[in-house]
Amino acid sequence: MLVSTRDLTVEVGAASLFSGLDLAVDTGECLVVTGANGAGKSTLLRCLYLLQRPSSGTVSVCGAAPDERSAAFRRRVSVVLDDSALFEELTARQHLDLLGRSFGVARPVPAALASRADVPAGDPSAGRRRRLLLHAAVARPHSVLLLDEPERALDAEGLSWLTTLVGQSLSVVVDSHRRPLAATVADYVVDL
């Protein structure tokens, strides 16, 4: 399994967001986590990237405990979280060039971003910024992709593009409010 949890529990104060959660995502599979606001969807992704420690239980990503501080871990796991950011002064073209140089891969600007490829990332719409974050996440080499509400700020065309992007990754864990997205891309759905 590329992503697994065993008896995972996260408590906030006296309340449990989730308790005893067992997950398993293998190569080529997509797990979509759904649930109401505050159910723990984003928290689960933060546990899978070790930005948050669980109260109890174990997490394994790519065969080891996650550690976002480890360069080896970051080379295998690509992530777009709610607070992911861009360099506001760099253009989409410059972002992808930097990404390509960092990971040793050439990445041209995709058609979905081409019309605004040379505009600073701080200037485009929220949907264009989201597309750039998502494209950058899948453009770099990775074994696991973690996406926190990737559909946020995307229009209908962007949602269609997103389903194609998710299909390009080896193993994916997505949290989402959009059940139609889950129905389109998920091999498994967990409702928190």
Rank of each mutant, 00 (worst) to 15 (best):
V61P: 06
S115G: 04
L21F: 05
R107I: 15
A64C: 14
L48D: 03
L50F: 12
A85F: 08
F103K: 03
P108A: 04
A36P: 15
D191I: 01
R152C: 02
R74D: 06
L113W: 10
A186W: 00
H95M: 07
T9Q: 06
G38Q: 00
L181N: 07
D26I: 10
A182I: 14
G167H: 14
G35P: 01
V174N: 00
L165R: 04
G35L: 00
D7F: 01
L2M: 15
G57I: 04
G104M: 06
D82K: 08
V33Q: 03
S78T: 08
A85G: 10
L44Q: 05
A126H: 01
R116C: 12
R53P: 12
L8K: 03
R69P: 09
D191Y: 02
Y188G: 12
A153Q: 06
R131L: 12
A153K: 07
R129G: 07
H135E: 09
G104N: 08
H95I: 08
L96I: 04
A114R: 13
V173D: 10
L133S: 00
V190R: 09
F18V: 04
P141D: 08
S84T: 15
R107V: 15
G38P: 06
A117F: 05
F87V: 14
A182Q: 11
L50Q: 14
G167T: 08
A71E: 15
V119M: 13
L146C: 05
V174H: 02
Y49W: 14
L134N: 03
P150N: 06
A92K: 11
C47T: 13
D123G: 04
S84Q: 12
T34N: 03
A106K: 11
V77T: 09
R76T: 13
P110Y: 02
F18Q: 05
S70A: 07
V61C: 09
Q168D: 13
R93K: 14
L192K: 00
Q52C: 08
H135Y: 07
P141M: 03
V3S: 06
E149Q: 09
V10A: 04
S84L: 13
V12Q: 09
S169L: 01
G122M: 12
L23F: 11
S102V: 10
Y49C: 12
T163G: 01
L21S: 01
D7L: 00
R130G: 05
S169T: 04
L96G: 00
G63Q: 08
T91K: 07
T163W: 03
L192R: 00
V25W: 02
V173W: 03
T91F: 10
R74S: 14
T184N: 05
P180G: 05
V119D: 14
R140G: 11
E11H: 08
R93L: 13
L48M: 07
T9Y: 03
A139P: 13
D123V: 15
V109K: 03
S42I: 03
L2K: 12
K41M: 00
G40S: 04
D155L: 03
Q94M: 02
R6G: 14
